[in-house]
Design a protein around this nucleic acid. Structure first.
Length: 279
DNA sequence: AGTTCCCTGAGG
DNA sequence: CCTCAGGGAACT
């Protein structure tokens, strides 16, 4: 499931493939993939792609004329660039949207393909300003790779509730999901049910560092391929072999041998070591 | 702040 | 068959 490292990997792979290309046509194969109206999305035809960026787990494809495309992969979304011939050869039933790009000299047109088995993914198209003002995007918190100690501590102190729940809140930090929240808490030695606002300053700093380290290391490994995540070129990520608690409920802790506990928090499973992680 | 729902393939 | 996984929106 794509979280910040997986989305960052996708953005880095797509950037050189898309920047400078023009969009000739937009084809929607599954209407529910498009958030809101289809009209502004259709109007993306003709724009020239200027930049590909990440905001939290959202992918921004910035175009000319102050128009953009925003993509959220959610659980099973995949983005890639395929030649028309390769696209036809695959006859993939899970393709939900394509953007036809201008042909490179002497070659057939390429397609930016959005495939998504479970249809949880969403795309938004339209004026860049209007997209940035969308509630989900406007309320996104700071990037965990960029936030500094004082700001992180202040944000923690301003919130109530359990630490794990807070880490999953995209308005607190943008980009951390279930996998890296569990892993960062383990590496920081902090219990997922710890009260966020009561965390001491040193422990808060340890957590911030753990989040940054785990995310950066995963980016270097190309993210984690747990079930459906693959790079735009079809390669898997390699970070899942580094995971120490996620998905390991009932197994032995790799540090101390204690049995990893699995609890459910807001419909999401949480795994932690009851001995290594303290409230 | 907690619950429900969306969706489909995989595994029992 | 049934159940489970899960990000985030939309509820209560």
């Amino acid at each position: 499931m794509p979280e910040l490292p997986e989305v960052e990997t996708v953005v880095r792979a797509l950037r050189p493939l898309l920047t400078g290309r023009s969009v000739n046509a937009v084809r929607v194969l599954n209407a529910s993939t498009v958030a809101g109206s289809l009209v502004p999305l259709a109007r993306l035809a003709g724009l020239s792609i200027q930049a590909v960026e990440r905001q939290g787990k959202y992918i921004w494809i910035h175009g000319s004329g102050a128009r953009s495309l925003v993509v959220h992969l959610r659980m099973t979304g995949w983005l890639g660039v395929l030649s028309r011939a390769e696209f036809d050869r695959r006859a993939d039933p899970y393709v939900r949207l394509t953007l036809e790009l201008d042909a490179k000299p002497g070659a057939e047109p390429d397609l930016l393909v959005f495939r998504d088995i479970r249809k949880f993914g969403r795309v938004w198209g339209g004026p860049t300003q209007a997209l940035a003002a969308l509630k989900a995007l406007a309320k996104l918190g700071p990037d965990p790779l960029v936030i500094e100690s004082a700001a992180f501590l202040a944000r923690l102190r301003a919130r109530r509730g359990r630490l794990k729940t807070l880490l999953l809140d995209q308005t607190f930090l943008a980009g951390v999901g279930n996998i890296y929240a569990d892993e960062a808490l383990f590496r920081a030695g902090i219990h997922p049910l710890a009260e966020a606002a009561r965390l001491s300053a040193p422990r808060a700093e340890r957590l911030r560092m753990a989040i940054g380290e785990i995310l950066n290391r995963s980016i270097e490994a190309g993210g984690s391929t747990i079930s459906d995540y693959y790079h735009p070129d079809g390669q898997p990520g390699w970070f899942e072999r580094e995971l120490r608690v996620y998905g390991r409920g009932g197994e032995a802790c790799l540090e101390c041998g204690a049995k990893i506990k699995r609890i459910v928090l807001g419909q999401r499973s949480t795994c932690f070591c009851p001995k290594c992680q303290r409230k």
